[in-house]
Structure formats: structure tokens, C-alpha cells
Design a protein around this nucleic acid. Sequence first.
DNA 1: TATATTTAAGATAAAATTGTCTTAAAACTT
DNA 2: AAGTTTTAAGACAATTTTATCTTAAATATA
Lengths: 150, 150
Amino acid sequence: MIFSKSCVYGLRAMIYLASISREGYVSIKGLSEKLDISFHFLTKILQELTGADLLESMKGPKGGVRLTKSGRCITLKEVVEAIDGPAIFTECVLGLPGCGSEKPCPMHDMWEGTRDEINEIFTTTSLQDMSKEGKAKDLRITPDGKFVWG
Amino acid sequence: MIFSKSCVYGLRAMIYLASISREGYVSIKGLSEKLDISFHFLTKILQELTGADLLESMKGPKGGVRLTKSGRCITLKEVVEAIDGPAIFTECVLGLPGCGSEKPCPMHDMWEGTRDEINEIFTTTSLQDMSKEGKAKDLRITPDGKFVWG
DNA sequence: TATATTTAAGATAAAATTGTCTTAAAACTT
DNA sequence: AAGTTTTAAGACAATTTTATCTTAAATATA
Ligand code: FES
Ligand code: FES
């Protein structure tokens, strides 16, 4: 898998949250059931996103999480970086430290372009793009296709 | 990291082995020291590559590993698949089962092209390409740059 | 105020990956 | 034939990732 499980769970949740027009908080419990992700595990991931100021949370009844003002217009890259860190967009494909800075590795030339393209596509695609796409075309964000958009 | 550590170690070793013109077997001990990889761990990885018929091995003094006849002209993809499996070249970026076959995920359209490009670049780049490149330009395949090409 | 609901935080556990160690089997050397 | 070198195989251990469970803190509602 190119991204960790935490990261893809986070992406799925964020895409769903971005598809919701309502202002209120969404309970993590409900979210976890809708997306078919373990509640406690999802909670931890969303806490990271809250720490990164992409989500804000509130406790108690009517509590939950929602996108922050800045979180409402972010790129997929920001979500990935908040969870998996920036390595995938910067790292040497052979795992050597400091890609490009010193002597590069033999795969550097063939890889750099592709990596730049990954970077490009994740910086130019917004969460909104994905949620609109998903909602408009009724696409799938759970393993079984039982999820239904807003 | 896009590839597992096992995979990256395997790639480094295979690139080095492909740079060697001599016919004989290369001892894993020597290889592990040259590449600065744990001997026992590297041994296991190379056993997988032997099982995949990319390497052949011989025991005893003068023993070691070397590229098989078919292993001498393979692509990087074959090495990656032998260790990490084909997932990276086929899988849904959101980790959903059966990318594209059923309803795709919202990221499918933006991702498929890039994934195809990764596939393309790894199927069209041979081990030979990388070893020639590395040897000709004295590139780096160890964390410190102390490695010297045959 | 008391109670129920919900996230926060951290302990614990399970699973996967990474790394080490030991013993066996094969091949060479003397 | 005996001893040495080297890979094969598998047990074992450490680390990281993934997942679960418990308790605390905050918020709403009655
Ligand atoms: S140095 Fe390896 S990809 Fe840049
Ligand atoms: S279905 Fe997700 S990338 Fe194809």
C-alpha cells in the first residue's frame, strides 16, 4: 500500500466530511459505522487531524468533529502529510537519506519525474474535488459499496 | 516509504549484482558488508529472489549468489513484485478491494494515470539500465556514499 | 445539579515488519 | 575423510503499525 492504513482511513473520512453541507459536528461513532472503520482507531486518526488544525472537535452530546475553516479548502497532500508525513513526496525511492542533495541513487533520474507528478496531483487536487466527484457520481469509499452519500 | 525495507534492500543488491561482469558467485557476507545491510536479513531477502528464479545460489566456499540467466535481463518491476508483491502497481489508492472492477473510489480517476506511469516506468526500466547508470556515473546505493562499484 | 453523551488520552494487545541467532545441509579444501 | 566455508531454514526477539479497551474531561439536557 502506498499510504498507511491510518492515512487511507483519514482520507476516506475527510472526503466524506467534505461532502457534508451542514454546519454541525459529526459524531465519530456514526462516522466509524458509516465508513466501516473501527471507532477507537478512527478516533485516534481524527485526533491527529484535529491536532493539525484540519478538523475541530467538540465533546458531549451534539459533539463530534467537523472541518475547520482552513480544513474546508485543503489539498489531499495536506491530509496525507498530517498522517504519514512528507516522506512519500520527497524521499529517495531506494530509501537513501537526502535524495538528490548528495550523490543521487541510480533510480533518481527515472523516479524524480514520477514523484514530482505524484506531488503535483496531490497538491492540485482538493478534498472538495474528491467529495464532489464522489457524491455526484455515487462512488465508493467503503470496502463493501453500502455507504451512501449525505 | 513506497517500498518495504526488504524491497529496497533487494533492489540495491540486485542493482549491484547486475553491475558485476564476472561469472562467479558473490558471497552474501561480502555483499552485506559492501551494501551495509544486516547479513542475516539480506540472506532472507535474497532467498526470496532465489525462489523467484531471479537469483541462483551455491553453498560452500566459492559459493554465494548470482543472477540467473533470466535474472540477467529483468525489469525493476519483477524485483519489486518478487518481494512486495504486485499491489503497488494495481491497488486502489484508498485501499479498497478490487480497484476499478466495481464502483471505483473518488480518487480513481486522478490516481489511475499516475499509477499506470509508475507501472510503465518500472516495466520499461531494466536492472541493467540501473546498474550501468550507477557504475558509469558512480552513483550512490548505500546510505553513506562509501560504496565503490566493482 | 445530576446524568447521559461524546471526544481526549493513554494503557494494553494483536499483527506485521524488521532484525538476530542457531542449527542443518551442501560444497569446497586439505 | 575431516574440517572449513557458505547458503537454507526456521526459531526467536525487537520494533512499528494496527487495533482495542479503560478512564478522564468536556458538553448538553433534563
Ligand atoms: S536519490 Fe534516490 S530517488 Fe533521489
Ligand atoms: S478504485 Fe480507488 S484507485 Fe481505483
